[in-house]
Design a protein around this nucleic acid. Structure first.
Lengths: 235, 235
DNA sequence: TAGTGGTCTAGACCACGGG
DNA sequence: CCGTGGTCTAGACCACTAG
């Protein structure tokens, strides 16, 4: 693990351990350099990470402050590259899981942005104790994900892809669209036909810039709210 | 303007001028250093900016590549700190504008996160040629925004706040919730009661970390789609 | 005006990708 | 193996905040 990631992690731990709240001040950069025995730019890289995650903000001439430590009950948009990771630690489970092999993703979903290559099609409903959270229909290119079963789809696919297959997911595009639920979706989500929903289409990219996964996520408006913390556009 | 911002801007111009597409390669770092006569970390800062904006991605050992230059017709979530800026350049106009002074923002909107202080309440419907895009109800703290009129609210308030008042908006929290339109909202948005919508509650923060604006945005599902490009979490 | 973060440089060395 | 990006340091100087 890189030094700046370690430093970032330790700063997070410091925030949690001391139960710091919005606006609380962190030690100054010189002190952090001293404490972690690293150079200034390593500290800056760590802070930049935390900044992007919405954990801290910096005010020139004043200090470094904690930003909104409590975000319980919200799904994080974007930052965590999809729900799979953000929810892997909480008690979610899957329903109506189906995996099949297809020649390519449907063209209306893929648009011009996703290759029409052989893929695994995964369908599942993600639930927690309150009920269904979302219905997922996603396509994993066989070129990268050469083996996929329904048993694997019961767990966290992103974890499997990262840990077992050794692929690194680097960034993602998300397209969001408001619409009404179809009859079929409503049944799967314990809702009524015509109820409001948000459809999010995500394309995930690997470290080499190649897309490897296209996902259509249809959310349950009764059980899901999102949070999106825009960072400081500053390094 | 800082060097790295200038460099970032010139790289963007280079992409536009040469009409570079997804996956096209940019000059290597050493070459960019040479061309712009700056140090390596200045180039890295510029690239980090472009990374966060979803303009480029970097692949270690391979090069720097262009990411998805065309995003026409989508509203950008988060990255641009609210719709106001992202849409200031296109031909939008406002309808049903009303500005009044209130003792404080409604408590159910403010939750624990926004101060209950005297504020200007601004209501307006943002439209473009296709029709209403969203209905906005926002609260600007008088402590920071001491003067606000309906005439000003016809224009871009963020521009006014930044240019005329000299306030710098630094980051924002967004809360997204799917729900049905009320009767009143439906009338304002040219929709039917019960139609799907996305309600986004935004809190905007100044450079000193203080919140100064709370906004409730109710979108028209027929006219708006969003894009959210999650960056590389890498410096 | 002192304190603190921001920008920028030069350079050493590491790590990954692809021929 | 070479080329390219990534990490890290030490240090000079700038810019903003707050008392």
């Amino acid at each position: 693990m890189k030094k700046y990631q370690l430093v970032a992690q330790k700063i997070k731990e410091h925030i949690n351990k001391n139960n710091l709240q919005q606006g609380d001040k962190l030690p100054k950069i010189a002190e952090l350099m001293e404490r972690f025995q690293v150079g200034k730019s390593t500290i800056l890289q760590a802070l930049s990470l935390l900044d992007q995650e919405g954990v801290v903000y910096k005010v020139q001439g004043a200090g470094i402050f904690v930003r909104m430590p409590a975000k319980k009950g919200y799904m994080t948009l974007g930052a965590d590259l999809g729900f799979a990771i953000s929810f892997s630690s909480t008690d979610v489970y899957k329903k109506d899981v189906k995996v099949e092999e297809v020649d390519h993703a449907p063209e209306d979903l893929a648009k011009d942005w996703f290759p029409l290559e052989p893929a695994y099609k995964v369908m599942r409903t993600i639930c927690d104790k309150r009920g269904p959270l979302l219905r997922e229909e996603s396509y994993y290119l066989k070129r990268y994900v050469s083996f996929l079963t329904e048993a694997l789809a019961e767990g966290s696919l992103f974890k499997y892809i990262q840990d077992a297959l050794g692929l690194e997911i680097r960034f993602a595009d998300q397209y969001l669209k408001m619409r009404k639920l179809t009859d079929e979706e409503a049944k799967l989500l314990d809702c009524e036909k015509g109820d409001p929903t948000l459809e999010i289409n995500e394309i995930h990219y690997l470290a080499n810039g190649e897309p490897f996964d296209l996902a259509k996520l249809v959310y349950n408006y009764k059980n899901v709210e999102f949070i999106n913390q825009s960072p400081d556009k500053i390094i």
